[in-house]
C-alpha cells in the first residue's frame, strides 16, 4: 500500500471535514419537512458520529459526541443532556468495536450500525420515560432501518471527503 493513510496526513484539514460533516448532519436533522416523512428521517448525526468514531477516533471521541448531542438537545428542545448522553455512549461503544467493525464487509457494517443507532434511540427512550414522557411508538425503528440501509452510501461519501483532504 503506497497510499498514505488519510489520518496520517493533515490534522487541520481532517478537523475541518469533521466539523463540516457534523454541521451538515445537524442541518439535515433540523430541516423542516412534511410531518408524514418525519418518522422516516434517519438519524444523520448518529451515522456521522459512528463514521468518525470508526475512522478518526483521535479526532472524534466521546467529547465531540457529547457536544454534538448537547447541540441537538438545544435544537430539538429536548431535556438538556438527553441526546448528549446517548451520543457519548454511542461514541464509546463504536470506538470499542472499532478494530473489528472496520474489517467487516459493508453490509455487515450496516447491521452493526443498525444496532448502534438502535441503542442510541433506546437510551433516548429510557431517558424520556424517566422524565415522564409517556411516548413509545415503534416508528423509530423504521428510521433506524433506513439509516442502516443508507450506511454504505454515507460511508463512501464521508470516506471520499476524508480522502480528498489528505494530500497524496
Amino acid at each position: 500500500m503506497n497510499r498514505r493513510m488519510p489520518r496520517a496526513a493533515s490534522a487541520g484539514h481532517t478537523r475541518i471535514v469533521v466539523i463540516g460533516t457534523l454541521l451538515l448532519a445537524i442541518f439535515l436533522s433540523i430541516m423542516p419537512m412534511p410531518a408524514g416523512l418525519l418518522s422516516y428521517r434517519p438519524d444523520w448525526v448518529a451515522l456521522c458520529l459512528v463514521y468518525w468514531s470508526l475512522e478518526a477516533p483521535e479526532r472524534v471521541g466521546m467529547g465531540t459526541a457529547w457536544i454534538t448531542g448537547f447541540a441537538m438537545d438545544v435544537l430539538y428542545g429536548t431535556l438538556l443532556g438527553e441526546q448528549a448522553l446517548a451520543d457519548s455512549v454511542l461514541a464509546f461503544i463504536t470506538s470499542g468495536l472499532r478494530l473489528r467493525v472496520r474489517m467487516f464487509p459493508r453490509w455487515q457494517q450496516a447491521l452493526v450500525v443498525f444496532a448502534l443507532v438502535g441503542i442510541n434511540h433506546l437510551i433516548i427512550q429510557i431517558a424520556q420515560h424517566a422524565s415522564g414522557h409517556p411516548g413509545g411508538n415503534w416508528s423509530y425503528w423504521t428510521s433506524d432501518g433506513i439509516g442502516a440501509l443508507l450506511w454504505p452510501l454515507v460511508y463512501s461519501v464521508l470516506r471520499h471527503l476524508q480522502r480528498r483532504t489528505a494530500p497524496s
Binding site: 410531518a35 428542545g77 429536548t78 427512550q125 411516548g135
Partner: peptide
C-alpha cells in the same frame, strides 16, 4: 423548524 426528537 419542526424538530423531530423521538416521540415529541
Amino acid at each position: 423548524a419542526n424538530g423531530s426528537a423521538p416521540f415529541s
